[in-house]
């Protein structure tokens, strides 16, 4: 897909999203005008803003048809194949990081994410990979759980129990 087509699709996508927002406000029975004795209705602000979004999307589409925007004349690929691979793999890796956080917990998930990114994508040696794989989760644990008392997702009971051992180890050192 080239930049020209991408701008057209984005313009239509944004127009549909704007109309969808207006429909959501309307179907939720929110007043978009004045409520007697109360003031502007709860739907007034989002509805008229969405209408403005729709208007600006139409404006962009008109400019596209007239060939005014540089993107509407650009026949280069929107994302070149190298970038699709690099960005696709990165986004998929972050997707897995988030998905596995609910299963094996954020700490083990980030270790897998770092293993994949540093060893497989970055092609670094084992010393660097292991250093980063252990160093980053330990730093996150110290900063967020020890200093900020913010508990991060620990996943299913089995993995949660593993992290409890880490907590026990920490308490044995600190108290």
């Amino acid at each position: 897909m080239n930049v020209r087509t991408a701008e057209l699709l984005m313009g239509f996508g944004m127009l549909l999203a704007s109309l969808g927002l207006m429909w959501t406000v309307y179907s939720d029975d929110l007043t978009i005008g004045w409520v007697q004795g109360v003031g502007p209705g709860a739907g007034m602000w989002p509805f008229w803003l969405s209408l403005g979004m729709a208007g600006s999307s139409v404006w962009t589409l008109v400019r596209w048809f007239k060939g005014v925007t540089p993107e509407s004349r650009n026949e280069d690929p929107y994302i070149d194949p190298d970038t699709i691979f690099m960005v696709g793999v990165t986004v998929a890796a972050i997707f897995c990081l988030l998905l596995f956080s609910s299963i094996i917990g954020l700490y083990f998930s980030m270790m897998l994410f770092l293993l994949f990114y540093v060893k497989v994508l970055g092609r670094h040696g084992w010393p660097v990979t292991i250093g980063v794989m252990i160093g980053v989760p330990v730093a996150v644990y110290m900063l967020f759980e020890v200093a900020l008392n913010k508990y991060l997702p620990r996943g299913l009971p089995f993995f949660e129990n593993l992290m409890l051992h880490v907590d026990d180890f920490r308490y044995s050192l600190m108290y």
Binding site: T90, S102, L106, V132, L148, P153
Partner: peptide, 22 residues
């Protein structure tokens, strides 16, 4: 390739720590 994943992790943890919601 070392810096990028660290930043992605910081982003994830930073958002979770602020709102407590995956």
């Amino acid at each position: 390739s070392v810096l990028a994943p660290i930043i992605f992790i910081l982003c994830t943890v930073g958002v979770y720590a602020t709102t407590d919601r995956m």
